Simulated scan of single mutants.
Amino acid sequence: MTSPPGGSDTGASTAKPQLLVCARCGTRSEGPQPTWTCSLEHGTRHYFCDSCARENLWAIEGRLDSAWW
């Protein structure tokens, strides 16, 4: 065998679902959530739950010039 147990040679996956923590409120979720937002800030990924993402998106839209709408 050329790879460790659970590697691609056996077809099995040892990857565990990533624990996501909202960078704003601390809500925890196991695995990707389709309603969560991921932001890359200074080379670091930050995840935001759907509630915090919704609140943040409103704030961002409020700072944009009307030409961006």
Rank of each mutant, 00 (worst) to 15 (best):
L64G: 01
V21N: 00
G31W: 04
R63S: 10
A12Q: 08
C25M: 05
C52N: 03
D50Y: 12
A67H: 01
L57T: 04
L20Y: 06
K16D: 07
I60P: 01
T27A: 15
A59M: 07
Q33K: 14
L57R: 13
V21I: 00
A23W: 01
W58V: 15
G62Y: 11
M1V: 13
A15E: 08
P32V: 08
G43H: 06
R24T: 05
P5A: 14
M1A: 11
C22R: 03
G7R: 02
F48S: 01
G7V: 03
E61S: 08
R45K: 08
D65M: 00
A59W: 00
A53V: 04
A15W: 09
Q33G: 05
A23S: 10
F48G: 00
C52Y: 09
G6P: 10
P4N: 13
Q18F: 06
A12F: 02
R45H: 13
I60L: 11
G31F: 04
E55Y: 10
P5K: 14
D65L: 05
C22G: 10
H46G: 00
C52V: 06
R28Y: 04
E41L: 11
P34G: 12
G43I: 09
P17S: 03
P5Y: 08
C22M: 03
R24L: 07
C38V: 13
Q33S: 14
C22H: 00
A59F: 08
G6K: 06
P5L: 12
R28I: 09
S13E: 09
V21P: 10
D50K: 13
S51Q: 10
T27F: 06
C49Y: 01
W69D: 15
T27Y: 13
L19F: 05
P4G: 07
S51V: 14
S51P: 07
A12M: 10
T44C: 11
A12S: 11
T37A: 08
E61H: 11
S39Y: 02
L20M: 13
L64W: 04
C38G: 12
V21M: 11
D9C: 03
K16P: 01
T14K: 04
L20N: 03
S39I: 11
T14I: 06
A67E: 09
T10E: 05
E30R: 14
T14N: 07
T35G: 06
T44F: 02
N56L: 10
A53H: 12
P32F: 11
G26H: 03
A23L: 08
F48L: 01
L40E: 06
S29T: 14
G11C: 00
